[in-house]
């Protein structure tokens, strides 16, 4: 099965994601323009890449979430297909309702571009099976709206369901709100839907997929996905 990377006007991480999938991880990958209304045949993974879709106008990801391709992505997700939203892609997923929550402006009101440490909270998802539970990984973040927000009762439900997959952490393995570079509630950096087949995260694994980039921890995501896709192709 192949990967499809959706390109919106203003996406700017699409080529990095395609490189990480295709050149680094040998997953056949096709770019899909947002005006398409169907996904390529045999798509197992849809990636919504980072960037500034529609200039971040109105709310980050709001317009992209109403693009012509989105019903096909929704349908793909409802059939159990994988959907990965990175940074702006995560914002798009919350705007579509495929993932709960909203990403608000960073608590510092600054655009933050830095490496950060994350704790892998779950390894039983198609995106994280190649990691060890509790593993600390380093992915960079680059965003202005990354403060994960949910009203208190819904946040409790999200935690109770075990939907938090990545949490901002320290090198010694502690994780939580105090390690959020952006003020994200409970230190939440990435979540899955209840089915576990839709993942959204603010940090960029595609920018941490080769040693020359300073970290190759992102390979864990691509390797997990590859194994899942190959398992499905059999």
């Amino acid at each position: 099965m192949k990967a499809a990377v959706v390109i919106f006007p203003g996406s700017n991480c699409d080529r990095d994601v395609i490189h990480a999938l295709e050149a680094v991880s040998c997953i056949p990958t096709q770019a899909v323009w947002h005006k398409e209304t169907s996904l390529p045949q045999d798509t197992g993974l849809v990636v919504l890449p980072g960037g500034f879709s529609y200039g971040d106008y109105l709310r980050c990801g709001a317009m992209a979430a109403r693009s012509p391709i989105v019903p096909a992505v929704r349908e793909h997700a409802s059939r159990g297909g994988l959907v990965l939203g990175i940074c702006n892609g995560f914002q798009v997923l919350t705007e579509t309702g495929l993932l709960p929550g909203a990403l608000l402006a960073n608590i510092s009101l600054e655009f933050i571009c830095s490496n950060c440490l994350l704790k892998v909270e779950r390894t039983d998802t198609p995106f994280t099976s190649a990691f060890k539970k509790g593993q600390i990984v380093q992915f960079p973040i680059a965003h202005h709206e990354g403060l994960f927000f949910l009203p208190e009762n819904e946040l409790e439900e999200l935690e109770a369901n075990g939907q938090v997959v990545f949490r901002y952490a320290s090198a010694d393995g502690s994780a939580g709100q105090q390690y959020s570079p952006n003020g994200a509630l409970n230190g939440i950096a990435g979540i899955v839907n209840k089915g576990g087949n839709v993942l959204g995260l603010m940090p960029h694994p595609e920018r941490a997929s080769e040693r020359i980039l300073g970290s190759s921890d992102g390979l864990g995501i691509w390797n997990s996905i590859k194994e899942w896709l190959e398992g499905r192709s059999k």
């Binding site: 608000l104 402006a105 960073n106 608590i107 009101l109």
Partner: peptide
């Protein structure tokens, strides 16, 4: 109400 408004705070 209750949603953090960082801009408003600044």
């Amino acid at each position: 109400e209750g949603v953090l408004d960082t801009q408003g705070k600044a």
